Structure formats: structure tokens, C-alpha cells
Simulated scan of single mutants.
Amino acid sequence: MYLADEAWPDLETYFEEESLALVPLGSTEQHGPHLPEGTDHLIAEAFAREVADRTGYLCTPTVNIGVSPHHRQFWGTMWVDAPVFRDYVESLARNLTYHGIDRIVFVNAHGGNVQHLREVGRRLRDAGDAYAVEWMWDDAIPDLVDDLFEQNGPHGGPKETAMIQYLHEELVHEDRLDDAKEGGVPSVAATGNVRHGSRTFYDAIDNTDNGVLGDQTDATAEKGEQLFDAASDQLEQLCEWLANQEFEALLPKEHV
């Protein structure tokens, strides 16, 4: 069920009977010369709406702009400051708790959001208002990602390329895949910017002139479909597990 498509009287039964909501989040930022700036939020929304259709759980509208200042040197990248993002997402989540939701899955497709969504989840849990977890699609299927791609990225690499080829092929500049590979770098390790255990870079452009890593020419829509189906299965299982938990068991334990 997609919240924004429903009239309010038709949502009452859901909020009376169910306690779980899916909240898709991504970013609007550069993904190299070949992918749209909406790559992350397009992927997040696709997963959330797919699993909402499968399960009947509620899916909210997508948070399209995330914590992306590390891509700011590339044209069109948009971002909000981390404290603003955390407060916004927490406020959005509390909208849901007002209507009776007490467990939330943040369906996330942007690495820059991860730590901030974890912090929001902690705030909500510590307050006893909701149990919210962050879910990242490629973290759900790491073995498959590794099996499909020799150089999988992470950013703007073949896994994201394959996903957008499958979900929105019309947005992929297929004629730029070679340029993306040749103008980028194979991996973060290959940049030489991890020194003595420290990540000595802050921005994407410190690592790659065109904003991407990995071998984009290794991507296909067929691989994207494999990734999408496998990760959707994992998200569906997470939702069912979470919906079946006693809420009290999800809250912080008492002090020893």
C-alpha cells in the first residue's frame, strides 16, 4: 500500500490493524557520467514499493535528498546537513507513530545516510516510541554482489548501473559506460588514499575525477534483475520478522 495514493478514510483500517511502515530514502547526487542523479532514491523507492506490494505493508513517499556533501563538487548534487537530515527523518518517523506505527524499516540506498539513520533509530527506540532499522540493499546480498561483479564499486559502479539498467533503462547512458570505467578508479583501495588504517579523503573527487568506481561495463539489466529479486526477498523477510516481534522485546533492556 502506497500511502500517497490513498484517501485518508481508506487508511484507518491499516493503522488500526498494522504497526509497520516502510520509508524509502536515497539521495540526489552525481553517479558518474552514465547514471542519473536520482539513482539512489529510485532504487530505494523501487524496493520499498515492491515489498509493500508483496506484503500489504505501508510505504511512505520517498526522501529524495540525503547526506551527500562529499559529492558537492559535481554539478547538480544536492544535500542537507547531517543534523538537519537526522531531525527531519526523526520528525517524519514520529508522524507515523502518531498514527499508531511502532516499527519502521528505513529502506535506504545511499551509504551517506547509514550512520544517521542508525542514530535516528536509536533516538526512537530509547524514547520507547518506535523500533526503526536501516536496511541497505547491497548489504543484504553481499555474496551475490561479489559473485556477479569482479569490481563492484562501490559508488556508481556496476551494481548500481545494473540496477538502474533493470529499473529505468531509459535513464542510463549506455554509450558512456566505457568512459565511466576509464575515467574512474577500480576501488577505494586503488586510490592510495587509505593510509596506515586511515581514510585520508573526504570527498568523492579526492578519489575519482568522474565520480565513480568499479567496472561499469560489467553491468547488465539481467544482473540488475537478479540483484533486485534477491534483495527484495531479504527485505520482505525482514519486514515479516519485524512485524512478528513483541514490541516490548524490541525496546532497550533494563540496567543491570
Rank of each mutant, 00 (worst) to 15 (best):
D5S: 15
A7M: 12
W8T: 13
L11M: 14
E12H: 07
Y14D: 00
E16M: 10
E16N: 14
E18Y: 12
G32R: 03
L35V: 00
L35Q: 00
D40L: 03
D40C: 04
D40G: 04
F47G: 00
R49H: 10
R54T: 04
G56A: 07
N64F: 09
V67M: 03
H70A: 10
R72C: 11
A82C: 00
D87R: 15
V89F: 08
V107S: 02
N108Q: 12
G112M: 08
V114H: 11
R118H: 12
G121A: 08
R125H: 02
A127V: 06
D129V: 09
V133I: 15
A140R: 03
D143Q: 14
F149A: 02
E150Q: 12
G153E: 01
H155S: 04
P158G: 08
L167D: 03
E170T: 04
H173W: 09
R176S: 05
R176W: 09
V194I: 13
R195Q: 13
H196T: 12
H196K: 14
H196N: 15
I205Y: 13
T208A: 14
V212G: 06
A221L: 07
G224K: 10
L227E: 04
E236L: 11
L238F: 15
C239D: 07
F247W: 10
L251H: 05
K253C: 07
